[in-house]
Design a protein around this nucleic acid. Structure first.
Lengths: 335, 335
DNA sequence: CTGTTAGCGCTTTCAC
DNA sequence: GTGAAAGCGCTAACAG
C-alpha cells in the first residue's frame, strides 16, 4: 500500500508553500497567480492527491458527517427513513454513518458514544428510550433527533406519527365495517411508545364501540406465540365476523400465510388490517387495508432539521408529528 | 455548544501527563499505579470525556471506518447486503459509512473520492462499471470489493452470483414444465453484467429448448413500457401456455398486479417466475417461483474479506461466486 | 511508573 | 501573491 500524497508533497512538487496549496484547495484563487494555480492543479492531478478529511476535520472541528442509529436496517421503517435521511443530508454535503442497535440499550449507548468519538456533527436515532438522560445531555452539544419513538427530551427533536389516533381510526373503521370481533396482534409493547400508543388506540376504539378488546401478544421468530394468536382468531371467526389487526407490517408478514390458511373467507368472514404499509400491500388478493406511515417525510424532516441547525440556524426543539393515513382496501371489504 | 474536553484537560485535572492518560485510554494499565488509574477514570467520568477519533485516526492513520456505496439503499439486494455487511464489520469494530450512487457513474466517482478523503480503510460497492480504472488503482491502496456487479479487476475482490447459470436453469425449468412461451422482462441491460448474464441465461435456455426468445424491455417508473410488455404477454397467453419471467424482483413487483389482472389462470394458463426472492414471494397466491440470491452471504463474505485484509492477512484478489438457487413454487405449478 | 516531545495533515493568522 | 509557523487532539519514541 503506497501511502497517499499530502499537502506537503503537493507543495514541494509545485514549488510553492503548503499555505498556497491550502488556499487553492479552498478555492481562494484571488490570492494566487494564474500560474501557480495551474501548476498546483497539475500536480494534484498527477499525484492523485486527495486532502485528508481527518486532518481538516481536526483543525476545523467539523467532520461533515452525521450518524444514524436504527434498530435494524432491514426493517421497512428503517429502510425508508434512512433513504430519505441520507438523500437529504447528501444533498447538503454530509456523509452518513449508520449502525444498528438491535434494540439493545447498552449497544445503543456504545454506538452513540462511538459516534461522538468520531465527532459526527449530529445524530438521528430510533432509541430504546433507555438512554434518554444521556441523549438529553448530548442534545446540548449537537443536534439530536429522535425518530419513530418520539420521546420528548429537552433540547432534542423528535419526529413520530400519530400512532394512537391512526390506530384508533383504523380499529374503529373495522368495527364500523361490521366486524364484531377485532383481534389485535402486537409485540410486547413495554417501554416502546409506538407500540403502546397503537395498542391504546385500539383500546380506545373498543371502548367507543363497546366491544371487548382481544389483544394477543406475539414474538417475531417464535412460531408458538403466533399459533396461539391464530387459534384465538380462528375461534372468534367461527362464531362471528372477525378482523385481524396487526401492530406492524412485520408481524402481519409473519402470520399472513397461516392466517389465510385458516380458510375463512376474506374479507367477508375475516378482515385483515395492519399498521404500516408493506410493499406487498396491494400484491396480495384482496389488497390490504393498512395505516400508511409517512416514513419518507420523517426522514426528510430529520435531515432538514439537522442541516438547518448545522447551518447555524436556530431551530426550536419540538416533537414533530407527521400524520399517518388509513388506507382502506379489499382485505376489509372496502376500497 | 460547550466544547468537548480534550486529553489535555483530563491530564491537567488528574494531575498527570497526557502520555499517562493516553496509556490509560489504550488499556496499558501495567505501566501505571492503581492510584493514577483510578484518578484518571474518575476525571474522565466527571468530564464526560470522549477521545477524539479524528486526532487518533490522523496520528494512527486508521479510522476504523469502511465505506459502502450502493445504487439505492431501499433495493432489496442492497438492504440485505448492507445489513450483513454492517453486522460483520460492526463485530470487528468497524464503522460503516453508506451512500447511494443512484446508478450514476459521476456521482459514484465523487462518492468514492470523498470516502477516500475521509480515509475509509476499505470500500465495498455496487459499481456501474464506469470507474473501473480508478477502482483498479484504488485497489492497490486499500481493499476494494465489487459486489453484485462482479467485474474482475486487478487487486480488487468481486462477489457475485452465478447469474447466467441460475437464469438458464429457471428458464429451462419453465420450458420443462410445459410453458410453450416464456416472456422475459428485463430493464435495459447495457453495461450491467448481472442483467446481461441473466438475459444470456434465458437465451441459452431458449436455444436448448428450441424456442423463440421473447425479450421485453421495460423501464421501472414508466407504465407505458410495462403496458407494452403486458400486451405481449397477453397475446402469447391467448395462444399457448405462457410464462412470465422477470429479471428482478422490482420489475415483477411493478407489474404483478396488472399481470394478474389479465385474467389468465395462474399457473395453468400463465406461469410467473422471477430472479430474486422478494419478501412477499410466498404471501401471494400461488407463491412465487424464483431465484434466491444469497444476499446475506455476499454481505458477510465482503465483510470477512475486508476485516481479514485490515487485520493484515493476505487475501488473494478473486471473483467469488456465491451460487443462487432456484425455488420452485406454485406460481409455475410446482413446489 | 511517569513525563517530554515530535509529529500525523491541514488551516490560519501574521509577515513580507 | 506568497510563506513561516503555531496548533487542532492524540500517540509513541525516548528519557528518566
Amino acid at each position: 500500500m503506497p501511502k497517499r500524497a499530502t499537502i506537503q508533497d503537493v507543495a514541494r512538487a509545485a514549488g510553492v508553500s503548503v499555505t498556497t496549496v491550502s488556499r487553492y484547495l479552498n478555492g481562494r484563487y484571488e490570492s494566487m497567480s494564474e500560474n501557480t494555480r495551474e501548476k498546483i492543479a497539475a500536480v494534484i492531478a498527477e499525484l492523485g492527491y486527495r486532502p485528508n478529511a481527518l486532518a481538516k476535520g481536526l483543525k476545523a472541528q467539523r467532520t461533515e458527517t452525521v450518524g444514524a442509529i436504527v434498530v435494524n436496517m432491514s426493517y421497512p421503517f428503517c429502510v425508508g427513513f434512512l433513504r430519505a435521511f441520507s438523500r437529504t443530508l447528501s444533498a447538503a454535503g454530509y456523509h452518513l454513518m449508520v449502525a444498528e442497535s438491535e434494540g439493545d440499550a447498552k449497544r445503543e449507548r456504545q454506538l452513540i458514544e462511538s459516534f461522538v468519538a468520531n465527532r459526527v456533527e449530529a445524530i438521528a436515532l430510533q432509541t430504546s428510550g433507555a438512554n434518554n438522560d444521556y441523549l438529553e445531555d448530548l442534545a446540548r452539544e449537537m443536534p439530536v433527533v429522535l425518530v419513530d419513538r418520539a420521546f420528548a427530551l429537552r433540547n432534542a427533536y423528535a419526529i413520530g406519527t400519530n400512532n394512537r389516533d391512526a390506530s384508533r381510526e383504523i380499529a374503529w373503521q373495522l368495527f364500523d365495517l361490521g366486524y364484531d370481533c377485532v383481534v389485535y396482534l402486537t409485540e410486547d409493547e413495554r417501554g416502546i411508545p409506538t407500540r403502546t400508543d397503537r395498542l391504546e388506540g385500539y383500546l380506545d376504539a373498543c371502548r367507543v364501540a363497546l366491544r371487548e378488546p382481544v389483544v394477543m401478544r406475539v414474538r417475531r421468530g417464535d412460531p408458538a406465540s403466533f399459533r396461539e394468536a391464530l387459534a384465538r382468531v380462528d375461534a372468534c371467526a367461527r362464531k362471528e365476523r372477525t378482523a385481524v389487526y396487526t401492530a406492524n407490517g412485520l408481524v402481519l408478514m409473519e402470520c399472513y400465510r397461516p392466517l389465510r390458511a385458516l380458510g375463512h373467507k376474506v374479507p367477508d368472514a375475516m378482515g385483515i388490517a395492519t399498521f404500516d404499509q408493506p410493499d406487498w400491500a396491494d400484491l396480495v388478493d384482496p389488497p390490504l387495508t393498512c395505516v400508511r406511515q409517512p416514513v419518507e417525510e420523517m426522514g426528510e424532516a430529520a435531515g432538514r432539521i439537522i442541516t438547518a441547525r448545522l447551518r447555524g440556524e436556530a431551530v426550536a426543539a419540538e416533537v414533530l408529528v407527521v400524520p399517518s393515513t388509513v388506507v382502506m382496501r379489499g382485505s376489509t371489504g372496502r376500497g
